[in-house]
Write a protein that binds this DNA or RNA. Structure first.
Lengths: 124, 124
DNA sequence: TGTATATATGAATATATGTTCAATTGCACA
DNA sequence: TGTGCAATTGAACATATATTCATATATACA
């Protein structure tokens, strides 16, 4: 990324040296993109519901589909997304494949999300 | 939502009584949607960068735009999104408007996200 | 080896969403 | 009151993405 900054305004509320200092304290671009990708995973109702389900116990694809009342194909697609993001892992047992959570931070992060959600108790 | 479940398979890995039990332990649909909306907010590089910036100090719109090297309009749009989601608040001071974080859980949740991101240290 | 079952995959479609561009609003100050 | 600046807003556009449908894999079992 080239460093030619847009000249936006002259408000000068923060001097450019301070902006420069803040810039050095910010996480690097790669980390930010990975972080955003991580949160994006949890930002879909289907996927986070799957996470909640797997928080209860390991399940096979068709169990999850039945639980969520959705097609097996769409669950499979979402599980693939979760798998790539390393949020779930799987094991094969004959014909069926069991999925389970693969991140020890997930319950923690989801719990905090619930806190935030319940505090802002507005009708959306 | 009607409760006519799709009959997906007969794998029967989990009996329907157990699925029913798990169903009762799952968060309700409204909470899940709010949670997904919350995580979706953090699931965009621009928005999470804004959050990181505001973690450092309160800033006006043009400062953020300069810092992120983005147009002031797009920052303003994103700030509106963050505002609606109650992640940021603002105060007016003359012509400029200062934004700051409005959620005491944010640094916590972002920190855990960073943990997850750094542990899965694959080259994506 | 052939059939049945659980899961995965690819293409297509519909929808959601981030940024830009062109205005407009709100406040300050001369 | 009128000009200037910071910020907001709405429409348009391009891109991303969730689900569906049809089909392909992979394993079990007869």
């Amino acid at each position: 990324m080239v460093d030619n900054q847009i000249e936006v305004c002259n408000c000068g509320e923060i001097h450019s040296e301070e902006l420069q200092k803040i810039r050095t304290e910010m996480p690097d671009v790669t980390l930010i993109h990975r972080l955003a990708d991580f949160f994006k995973i949890l930002g879909d109702p289907t996927r986070i519901t799957i996470v909640f389900a797997l928080l209860e116990k390991e399940m096979c694809v068709c169990d999850i589909a039945t639980l969520l009342n959705m097609s097996q194909s769409s669950i499979s697609h979402q599980l693939k997304t979760l798998k790539i993001a390393r949020l779930v892992k799987y094991r094969r047992s004959g014909k069926t494949i069991f999925y389970s959570l693969d991140d020890r931070h997930i319950d923690e992060i989801v719990s905090i999300g619930v806190l935030h959600t319940k505090e802002g108790n507005d009708g959306k």
